[in-house]
Design a protein around this nucleic acid. Structure first.
Length: 405
RNA sequence: GGGGGGAUACCAAAGCGGCCAACUGGGGCAGACUGUAAAUCUGUUGUCUUCGACUUCGCAGGUUCGAAUCCUGCUCCCCCCA
């Protein structure tokens, strides 16, 4: 089980990477690993407070997978302990304190989803509560003595908050230390992280040196921009595409990204061969429309298969471009309602959160019933048992109701 | 320990006795347009039995014909000084 030549490994590793600190150390580690036949230990920590993975997470998980494919050893840390501290994100929202069970369960969900990207059989899963949870107060004080306040507030996020007179809780200083301690404990060779993690990863290096270990290399991946093209992909900005997302949604949401994002998404999110990336980039510039459709198709194919990808493309053509009711619409059987108003049917069948909202939709011309536009909010469709009704609300919400006795 | 400031709808932020379901911006939704679920423009954005009614402005009381706006207590948050 020989390793590829170092330069070939580096070509894979470099794809999409923002920074490798320091790159020379990584090359040296790879060379030694190849010479001794010993795989490198690649560490990735994850935050189990939000278990739903989206394409933003996939960037870094894919990178870990690439290391696996090169024959290295992947360690996925479920941050069940650090999750209870909460990484200072600058958002600084008080996070709900999760119970151990919550965190455990989230961790499992996380891994189930991550397994769609990683090679689960070759992934070592660890929980950092195993070693962080057993530290005593004196251990923590010793750990804290290894860095300084000045060093801490160098961290970009802390600097900003400090200057803006925003609160910084003392425990937030412990987060980078805890994460660094993970590296010490696992004796990691490489840690993967987003660019926002740079400080934390470097802290790992510092603590490893303190411990007399060879420090890990920090490999930083870009933060993927969300579908709004502005902010990083995040559930809280609602600009994300989930890994579990249904094919049609995944396809449609992908088309919503800006043209400028397309090429980057190919590089970071898809399995398009690295050698082809230059051609892909050229195509994204020359023919953004079709390039983006291909991107959407590719992503759906990766997560749902070729058939689903074809179907999603067809669905998009029909419903969005030609504004037709989808042919694969499922029929929901409902009893003949007492309140037969259109707005009531909409609210009862998930087309609108409330009657008022349904009314607004109707008044704004966003609703059709059996392809007929309805603008009267008091409209009552005449239906009898056995009749079917297709209600369309907005561009992409449809429902077909069949009335039963 | 002392002093000051604040809590308003999804978020931010006005309002400071009636004209407030509550300015404005962001976000969301809809319509037009478009290669697109982008951009742009327009409308809309508490609930309901919608030309009207009802419940909202940290929580609980009180003053008043009438309060998000005044008073009292409580809870939480932030800043400054020590």
């Amino acid at each position: 089980m020989g390793f590829l030549p170092v330069e070939e490994q580096m070509a894979v590793i470099r794809r999409g990477v923002v920074e490798i600190v320091p790159e020379a150390e990584l090359v040296a580690k790879l060379e030694r690993s190849r010479a001794t036949g010993k795989p490198l230990r690649i560490k990735l920590g994850c935050d189990p407070t939000r278990p739903d993975l989206h394409l933003g997470h996939s960037v870094i998980l894919r990178k870990l997978r690439q290391f696996q494919d090169l024959g290295h050893h992947a360690i996925l840390i479920i941050g069940d302990f650090t999750g209870m501290i909460g990484d200072p994100t600058g958002q600084n929202k008080t996070r709900p304190a999760l119970t151990i069970e919550d965190v455990r369960r989230n961790g499992e969900t996380y891994f189930e989803q991550a397994a769609r990207i990683l090679d689960p059989a070759k992934t070592e899963i660890v929980h950092n509560s195993a070693w962080l949870g057993t530290m005593t107060f004196i251990d923590v004080i010793r750990l804290a003595s290894k860095t300084t306040v000045a060093r801490m507030i160098e961290r970009d996020d802390f600097t900003k908050r400090f200057q803006a007179n925003e609160p910084i809780s003392l425990h937030e200083f412990l987060y980078p230390l805890a994460q660094g301690q993970d590296s010490v404990h696992l004796r990691s060779d490489v840690e993967l992280g987003g660019t926002d993690q740079k400080f934390n990863l470097l802290m790992g290096r510092a603590l490893q040196k303190e411990d007399g270990q060879e420090p890990q290399v920090a490999l930083l991946m870009p933060l993927l921009e969300g579908t709004d093209g502005v902010q990083k992909m995040s559930k809280s900005y609602d600009n994300y595409i989930g890994i579990d997302e249904a094919p049609n949604d995944m396809y449609g949401k992908t088309l919503r990204i800006t043209d400028a994002q397309t090429a980057g998404w190919f590089e970071l999110l898809t399995d398009v061969p690295t050698a082809d990336l230059a051609a892909v980039r050229a195509r994204c510039a020359a023919d953004p429309r079709n390039a983006k459709h291909d991107l959407a198709w590719t992503l759906v194919r990766m997560y749902h298969g070729t058939e689903a990808a074809d179907a999603a493309r067809a669905h998009f053509e029909r419903t969005v471009i030609q504004k037709e009711v989808p042919t694969d619409l499922e029929t929901t059987e409902v009893p003949l309602p007492e309140d037969g108003r259109l707005v009531a049917l909409m609210a009862a069948n998930g087309l609108a959160p409330s009657l008022s909202e349904a009314r607004r939709l109707v008044q704004q011309g966003g609703v059709t019933v059996n392809d007929l536009k309805i603008t009267d909010p008091a409209f009552v469709p005449e239906v009898a048992v056995g009749d079917a009704l297709v209600i369309k609300a907005g561009k992409r919400k449809f429902v077909r109701l069949r009335f039963v006795g």
